[in-house]
Simulated assay, not measured.
Amino acid sequence: MSGAVAVPFLDLAAVHLDLRDDLDVAWKEVLAHGRFIGGPEVAAFEAEFAAHCGVGHGVGVGNGTDALELIMAGLGIGPGDEVIVPGNTFVATVEAVRAVGARPRFVDVRPDTLLADPAAVAAAITRQTAAIVAVHLFGQMADVDALARLASQHGVALIEDAAQAHGARYLGRRPGGWGAGAAFSFYPGKNLGALGDGGAVVSDDAQLIDKIRLLADHGRSPSDRYVHEASGRNSRLDTLQAAALRIKLARLDRMNAARVAVVEQYRRGLPSWCVPVAEDPAAEAVYHLAVVQVPDRPRVTAALDAAGIGWGLHYPVPCHRQPPFAEYADGPLPVVEAAAERILSLPLSPGMTPEQVDLVCEVLHDVPI
């Protein structure tokens, strides 16, 4: 197809086309009041997003990585502590652990969902364990019911990495209330994406949220802006991003339903050798990514390229094999390592048409596997 794009991996331009008028109004309102940091839209979004997650409190921060790090810092996790993380996650999860001085302890995942295996987590808990990170990957929540019980039994914190799970549910509950709190990323490609970087923490723990708010604003006292109660940092969600996120939040459930419909069509139309990641019966996935496992990835991606169809890999090099973190690997993670050789992310956008999904499936059916 001479480089033409028949199906983009993610069509953000189309997503924002329908929002343009509302975004223009929000832009003009923020320009009019001029409070680009800490404007009224920030507090409004924090409250609305916390309510959407079904928890009591929220605080906007600079990005999803900061959100994770600030939860750990707010809980007092640091040098000498261990934090359990699945090997199948984006490196930001591990970066946050290292940023507070703790040691990541990698565990394997379930072969069907590619999410943290509670049995592997249980086996990894030691006297140094301070927290378990439940990574909700690809738009599906991990088994937080089992992980929360483990955390409670061993007196450790449960932290939710919900960077890819805006609106997802497990046993009917969204991220944020299963443990200490949930960290979200609003990177533009997320189900709820900003027009740049952004993040948030939501929790039922008001004291934790207050601590994170203080740390994220240079440790500034809430009662005297010239007094800094702690050595903090600068990690604030700016007003323009909050204004855009409020507009998108009102449409999030509808956009997620469109993603689910695309993946359901994929499941009906894909060849038998192209196996989608399973959905846990207790979960309601929102499909940030349409991840499948294939037997010959180079051949499959070559066919997609030839047809002008976008694709991605999430993630071909597991965290415990990345150079900065290899020293923390306690041994092989067989499921993670096998999946890394086979995973492939197919095109997925809320505005993707049935015809586009059919084209992807037709191209895959023609691959000689």
Rank of each mutant, 00 (worst) to 15 (best):
S2A: 13
A4C: 01
A4R: 13
A4M: 06
A4W: 07
A13P: 00
A14G: 03
H16S: 08
L17C: 02
D21R: 13
L23K: 02
V25E: 12
W27I: 06
W27R: 15
V30L: 07
G34W: 14
R35I: 09
F36C: 00
G38K: 05
A43M: 08
E46M: 11
A50T: 09
H52Q: 08
H52N: 08
H52Y: 15
H57P: 01
G60H: 07
V61T: 07
N63I: 06
T65H: 05
D66K: 12
E69T: 12
I77D: 03
G78K: 08
G78P: 12
E82M: 07
V83P: 13
V83C: 09
P86I: 07
P86L: 04
G87F: 01
A92D: 11
A92L: 12
A92E: 06
A99V: 06
A99K: 14
R105M: 03
F106L: 07
L114Y: 14
A116N: 03
A124H: 02
I125Q: 10
Q128H: 14
V135T: 15
Q140N: 00
A148L: 03
A151V: 09
A151R: 07
A151L: 05
S152V: 09
Q153Y: 02
Q153I: 07
E160L: 01
A163Q: 15
G167D: 09
Y170L: 13
G172H: 06
G179L: 11
A183S: 14
F184Y: 15
F186D: 10
P188T: 06
K190D: 01
L192S: 11
A194E: 13
G199T: 12
A200V: 12
A200F: 13
A200N: 07
V202F: 08
V202M: 10
S203L: 13
S203R: 12
Q207C: 05
D210A: 15
L215Y: 13
A216Q: 11
A216L: 11
S223Q: 09
D224Y: 13
V227P: 01
E229Y: 01
S231N: 12
S235R: 08
R236W: 09
D238A: 00
A242K: 11
A244Y: 14
A244L: 08
L245H: 10
I247P: 04
M255Q: 13
N256C: 06
N256E: 01
N256P: 03
V263H: 05
E264W: 05
Q265M: 09
Y266F: 14
R267F: 02
R268K: 15
G269E: 08
L270Y: 05
P276N: 02
A278D: 14
A278S: 14
A278C: 05
E279T: 15
D280P: 06
A282K: 09
A283Q: 04
A283R: 02
V291W: 04
R297K: 14
R297H: 06
R299Q: 14
A307G: 04
W311C: 07
L313C: 02
H314Q: 04
Y315E: 11
V317Y: 04
P318I: 11
F325T: 01
D330N: 05
G331E: 01
P332M: 02
V336I: 02
L344C: 12
L348Y: 05
S349N: 08
M352K: 04
M352L: 15
P354G: 10
E355K: 14
E355G: 15
V357G: 04
L359V: 07
C361G: 10
C361Q: 11
